[in-house]
């Protein structure tokens, strides 16, 4: 079975870890959100540097807002907005917040990508 080599981070340390990677020359590729179980979300931060890859794994309970990395790294702005649209995950301190309306219409309140529960936007 293939698994991803990841560095596990917590909501408290994620911004610091991202900043550390960025200063040591890593380039953020993207973030992926997975609906793990009825209780938990997982967000993966993918980085690359001269074709090598590294990933940060952040697991957190549903309903919790995680800190935004956009102030550290502007390229995350669309990804975080997309995750907010699809999964209803809230990011604290997101500078350019489309408020769940990047892809979806204003009247859509459900989060379409959640598998285990149809969460609503906080």
């Amino acid at each position: 079975m293939k698994t991803l080599d990841t560095i596990t981070v917590t909501p408290e340390t994620v911004v610091g870890e991202v900043a550390k990677l960025v200063t040591s020359g890593w380039r953020m590729i993207t973030m992926s959100c997975v609906d793990l179980s009825p209780e938990q979300f997982e967000v993966l931060y993918h980085f690359d540097k001269e074709l090598a890859e590294t990933h940060l794994r952040l697991t957190f309970p549903k309903g919790m807002a995680i800190p935004s990395v956009t102030p550290t790294l502007f390229m995350a702005v669309l990804v975080e907005n997309e995750i907010k649209d699809h999964f209803g995950v809230c990011f604290d301190g997101l500078p350019l917040d489309f408020d769940g309306k990047l892809y979806l219409e204003e009247e859509v309140k459900a989060t379409p990508f959640c598998k285990y529960s149809t969460g609503t936007k906080q």
Binding site: I29, T30, S32, V34, D35, M75, V77
Partner: peptide, 24 residues
Amino acid sequence: YLKGNGTKFLERVRIRTPTFANIP
């Protein structure tokens, strides 16, 4: 990003296309 769980349905497929990265 692919995640499989041993069934024929994948658990998660996440596609990051280049234009998505090129908008910022």
